[in-house]
């Protein structure tokens, strides 16, 4: 499902822009619904674990939707990004705000990682990647069944440097397309391709395969 949308991200954008300009109040909601799974994964991946007890990813998503509704007129006036990436950016900004509110000065280490982005999205932490691999509601018994394979991948991903980890987070965990990942990082597609293939090779080495 997501892939077809990804590969054809621009038609979604045209549709949204067309419908929203025509005054269809449901256009944004439909777009949000279509990409909710991927946006949710993004939040799960990037919500700082120190904030997790206090902030629910669902709330971040819902507040992000409210932000998007407020920012829609500006976006429609000048839609530079495909609609999905714009939504992802708005939700990411909301996430950064949540981190600032709750972490304040403890943000230093995260701030360093933010410089990797053109967009102010908090970096995908290795802890969050691990949590994604293990699944939120998986019981200890079920986790144990596949623990070996998952833990191997987890260790390997964590052993990578943040740049490699990030491109893998975008492509394999957020499931962004090549074009989307390049745009999210603010680099050329060719550069993103090279970065991804090299990251996967280093991951392969880390997996010891």
């Amino acid at each position: 499902m997501g892939t077809a949308v990804m590969a054809d991200g621009s038609s979604g954008t045209h549709q949204l822009v067309g419908r929203a300009r025509a005054g269809d109040p449901a256009a944004l909601g439909d777009l949000f619904a279509r990409h909710r799974d991927r946006l949710r994964r993004m939040v799960d991946l990037r919500l700082d674990r120190r904030v997790r007890g206090r902030v629910d990813p669902s709330d971040v998503l819902q507040d992000g939707f409210a932000d998007a509704a407020g920012k829609l007129p500006d976006y429609l006036a000048d839609p530079r990004l495909p609609a999905f990436l714009w939504l992802r950016l708005v939700v990411g900004e909301r996430l950064a705000k949540v981190h600032r509110t709750h972490l304040g000065t403890q943000m230093r280490d995260a701030a360093l990682e933010v410089s990797l982005y053109r967009a102010p999205l908090p970096a995908a932490s290795s802890a969050a990647l691990a949590a994604q691999l293990l699944g939120k509601h998986t019981s200890p018994t079920e986790a144990a069944v596949r623990a070996e394979q998952m833990l191997r991948v987890q260790e390997a991903v964590n052993a990578l440097d943040p740049i490699d980890r990030e491109i893998i987070a975008l492509r394999n965990f957020e499931e962004l397309s090549r074009a989307e990942a390049a745009q999210a990082l603010g680099i050329e597609e060719a550069a993103a391709a090279k970065r991804y293939v090299r990251a996967i090779k280093r991951l392969k080495d880390a997996l010891g395969g």
């Binding site: 394999n172 996967i200 090779k201």
Partner: peptide, 25 residues
């Protein structure tokens, strides 16, 4: 040669992700 390096590695990542869905109670 490259494909033999890269594809099994991404399959492992995707497979590990998959475990979540498959193992859902």
């Amino acid at each position: 040669d490259d494909l033999r390096d890269v594809l099994p590695a991404v399959a492992q990542v995707e497979g590990a992700k998959d475990a979540r869905a498959d193992d859902l109670p």
